[in-house]
Design a protein around this nucleic acid. Sequence first.
DNA 1: CCATCTTTGTGCACGCGTTCACAAAGACAT
DNA 2: ATGTCTTTGTGAACGCGTGCACAAAGATGG
Lengths: 251, 251
Amino acid sequence: MATGRTHRPATRSRGIPEATVARLPLYLRALTALSERSVPTVSSEELAAAAGVNSAKLRKDFSYLGSYGTRGVGYDVEYLVYQISRELGLTQDWPVVIVGIGNLGAALANYGGFASRGFRVAALIDADPAMAGKPVAGMPVQHTDDLEKIITDNGVSIGVIATPAGAAQQVCDRLVAAGVTSILNFAPTVLSVPDGVDVRKVDLSIELQILAFHEQRKAGEEGSGDGTAAPAAAQEHRKGPDGDVPAVMPA
Amino acid sequence: MATGRTHRPATRSRGIPEATVARLPLYLRALTALSERSVPTVSSEELAAAAGVNSAKLRKDFSYLGSYGTRGVGYDVEYLVYQISRELGLTQDWPVVIVGIGNLGAALANYGGFASRGFRVAALIDADPAMAGKPVAGMPVQHTDDLEKIITDNGVSIGVIATPAGAAQQVCDRLVAAGVTSILNFAPTVLSVPDGVDVRKVDLSIELQILAFHEQRKAGEEGSGDGTAAPAAAQEHRKGPDGDVPAVMPA
DNA sequence: CCATCTTTGTGCACGCGTTCACAAAGACAT
DNA sequence: ATGTCTTTGTGAACGCGTGCACAAAGATGG
Ligand SMILES: NC(=O)c1ccc[n+]([C@@H]2O[C@H](COP(=O)([O-])OP(=O)(O)OC[C@H]3O[C@@H](n4cnc5c(N)ncnc54)[C@H](O)[C@@H]3O)[C@@H](O)[C@H]2O)c1
Ligand SMILES: NC(=O)c1ccc[n+]([C@@H]2O[C@H](COP(=O)([O-])OP(=O)(O)OC[C@H]3O[C@@H](n4cnc5c(N)ncnc54)[C@H](O)[C@@H]3O)[C@@H](O)[C@H]2O)c1
């Protein structure tokens, strides 16, 4: 023990590795499915297959939570569902606000998957005066002017940002100032926040670009056995202004 | 060298670490913003700050692409934009299909951020007969029956799945069979695909659960110095059926 | 042409995460 | 009660990713 306290505030939390935390929801989903089929117990092998991970990894992940599981039998599904839920903090209610009720924000508001895990949409907030009062997903959109009051009154600690990129940092600052300490950001911007505030981002564009990279690689590897490149070899790269870059080079 | 060829087909691609690939779009975004402001050159320090990463990491990332950059000066913005775009495969056109035009699918279809990076929405596909022909984002929704033909005719290699979870694997199988080799999955399911097909998932629910975990930790740490737990100590864990679990235990 | 100063490119060490492999634990049959 | 058989929990090795720190490169000014 005593590994902590070396100015590492947000890396390892209470002994549970971040990578493990990120997989717990995955296990929880698989377990919930088993629970609905009234499966009483499950082995690490079976559950790992359902979650799409290595079984040793799963066992090690669970070992951070404690010694649940019975050798020779496996894990009690219901019990594990409860333990993981508790560890993730899903046994309590998390009021959430969504800021920016456009295409994406409205889709999120309409999404049923929120409530299923203890996340309750407490308010929808938008800067457009024309939207104020309009019902979205059976809930009136509120104006940004009341943001601070909404956060405080509802005890909101998790905020979702679905505004255009240009407004995201400003919205973020206001959310944080009002007391929000966790932010899920859908806008394509790097948010800067004070210590103690967690930001996670969902970036569709980045995901597509990563896919495109691998896609290009597959296509290029197709013909040649090695995969270095199909076209003109030996043109590794070059700083020379002409011949390589198609007219985009500055000067 | 010669580290490769140990049956590692999808980990390191052409020498560029996966972690680096995932950051390239981030750099590209920051560089594009600089380009629009007509900034000619940028130092690793400045660019790293804009992208929210360590400057040494950024330099190492770029070193995988080649020796662009001039010592004492920095990197040529336009040149770097081009090089990264090329590396990511964004200099070519990527036709994309979106399957499942509900709340989320429609939002994605309406999203302008697609086209900006070479991704072109080639078709919108839904299983609901009532939706067929309906225009969404200025484009008629097509029926699932024609999925294979649409993929083939448009040379689509990237598919986006925004159907309910129950339909995702089936849709995925059809996409793959039709020739799609990269999938972006929004449905909360683990997709199984043959080798050579890349899947990336965007899972809102998982992100929220991770935030909730840290949020709970912050709240629990507040009062106590150690942060082990506030309530009844010494109840480490226990397999016994009663007393710990709040009526969810099976038998 | 030389000196100085800025900034890159990278060698190196360290820590986290993953995976293998196996001993210990316990269920179950006899 | 004892043996067998299944499956957990984890020690240990390895590889990837990160960040420090610095030498080399080259621009810039005299
Ligand atoms: N639509 C998608 O599929 C999608 C996908 C990935 C990322 N995104 C990102 O999500 C964000 C929203 O996308 P969208 O398509 O819903 O855009 P949108 O233009 O439809 O909606 C943006 C909404 O934010 C509101 N808004 C603007 N400034 C605000 C402020 N300061 N405070 C509160 N609300 C404000 C606007 O009134 C509008 O209703 C963008 O940053 C976009 O890049 C969207
Ligand atoms: N809406 C959100 O904000 C959100 C957020 C995270 C995840 N998700 C996930 O994204 C998916 C879509 O969510 P949604 O809110 O848009 O749901 P939705 O019910 O509004 O839309 C689903 C659409 O898929 C179509 N569909 C069903 N089966 C199909 C099939 N076999 N082939 C083609 N199309 C089919 C339906 O006709 C419908 O139009 C779900 O899996 C959901 O869990 C949604």
